[in-house]
Design a protein around this nucleic acid. Structure first.
Lengths: 233, 233
DNA sequence: TGTAACCTGTGGTCAGACCACACGACGAGA
DNA sequence: TCTCGTCGTGTGGTCTGACCACAGGTTACA
């Protein structure tokens, strides 16, 4: 048995406490110094483990004293998924094409389920579309709202895993989306088309037309990707 | 502008080096002490960032000297995705039901694509099924091969993102699968049924019957989940 | 009673030390 | 000349101790 690394001991201990109910969302972790003594490791090893937990979106840390200070279990997977996918794309572990294909699968499933569902709550998505129709938006603002729209559909599905994964995929290719938009021949024309496609997707969902919604979303995503991909090299 | 945390500086520097091509898979990161001096932070902060990169599957570290020592970019997303999803499930950020639903979506898409593809290479998957038919397997060995089979289908699809996500989802609910299997009334009967379902999925893919393959996989996953879920408490 | 000063415990960071390890260079011996 | 063992060196892994900024509670004073 090879000796486990000290930070791994801390990580395992926290995971075990979570699985066995000794730790739940909202709870405080023991202080770093206490954890170090209890687990028989140095404080620096504890901190390495806590850093991992923080990046993974499991805890939030705050300095000072009082109830809001210290490390608290939060279980917000979005940030961790974004960091993971963004870095994997940067390190060429995730090809951009695979990210886009995965978006097609997930968003297709999302809109299919939403359309099949009984009166899903899409007011948030509709509000985002309304905000996007303002003519004073910069390109960056438009793209941010575009991302928010897609994410709001995932949230409407109620699936935490899909929502977090979508957030990660989106942030992973955010740079490509921005660079691609900058190289388009006519941004106004493209943005208007994207708006219409968004409205079309939303309308198909609300009409309960699952297949139409899926195809519209598919065309929306792959269309933009193809268009921007043509102009980069 | 709030001061960025020291480890964040390191993480950002590495990400920038990756994006701008100064670092590629197989390259060595500078030594921890060098990195600390170059970025103007302490070595412990560098180590916190490297720990994150290691857990995320971006680097591999080794002690000693020579070409294989040090921190090397590897971009293996499987481990990071597994850690992220396992911990999020443990911390109740990811409901198990959502994990299963996501599996249904992804594995359905995988087999659909494989069936539609032109003569996919499924020899690895077939070999795993053959290995599963040995009668001397323990329950744990059977479950491990079961996981390997599902993962091999993802790998056959060639999509790195889907493969890594599948690996993460699987490991996140591994504990539940094991606990559920232990509570089944008749494990031999269940394992035989699972085997038949696997064969059915594979046959449908090879026959090019996309819809049949998707439905078979859907029934396979949701069936096992429903069966084990009934017997746990 | 209200307020200001202080105390305490927290995470954030750094510096330094030591260890085990693995490779590569060097030198002694055949 | 070749082989093999030794030693040096640089690496990550870990621990310890120290200091800081911060935020809250506590206390003492007006």
């Amino acid at each position: 048995m090879t000796a486990p690394r000290a930070w791994q001991v801390v990580l395992d201990a926290v995971e075990r406490d979570l699985l066995e109910g000794r730790l739940s969302p909202g709870d405080h972790l023991p202080a770093e110094r206490t954890l170090a003594v209890d687990l028989g490791v140095g404080r620096s090893s504890v901190r390495e483990a806590l850093r991992v937990l923080e990046v993974l979106g499991l805890i939030r840390t705050a300095v000072g004293s009082g109830p809001s200070a210290g490390a608290i279990i939060v279980a917000r997977p979005g940030g961790g998924m974004s960091a993971l996918m963004r870095l994997q794309v940067a390190a060429q572990g995730f090809p951009v094409a695979d990210v886009v294909k995965t978006r097609l699968v997930l968003e297709g499933a999302i809109v299919t389920e939403l359309a099949a569902g009984d009166s899903p709550d899409l007011t948030a998505s509709a509000q985002i579309l309304t905000a996007m129709e303002r003519q004073t938006l910069t390109q960056a603002e438009f793209l941010a709202l575009d991302a928010a729209f897609h994410l709001s559909l995932a949230e409407a599905s109620g699936n935490q895993v899909v929502t977090a994964t979508m957030a990660g995929l989106r942030s992973a290719i955010e740079g490509y989306a921005r660079a691609g938009a900058a190289g388009l021949p006519s941004w106004p024309a493209t943005s208007v088309r994207l708006m219409h496609e968004h409205r079309g997707v939303l309308a198909a969902i609300l009409a309960g037309e699952a297949d139409a919604a899926r195809l519209a979303m598919h065309a929306h995503i792959s269309g933009y990707y193809a268009e921007t991909h043509l102009h980069e090299h």
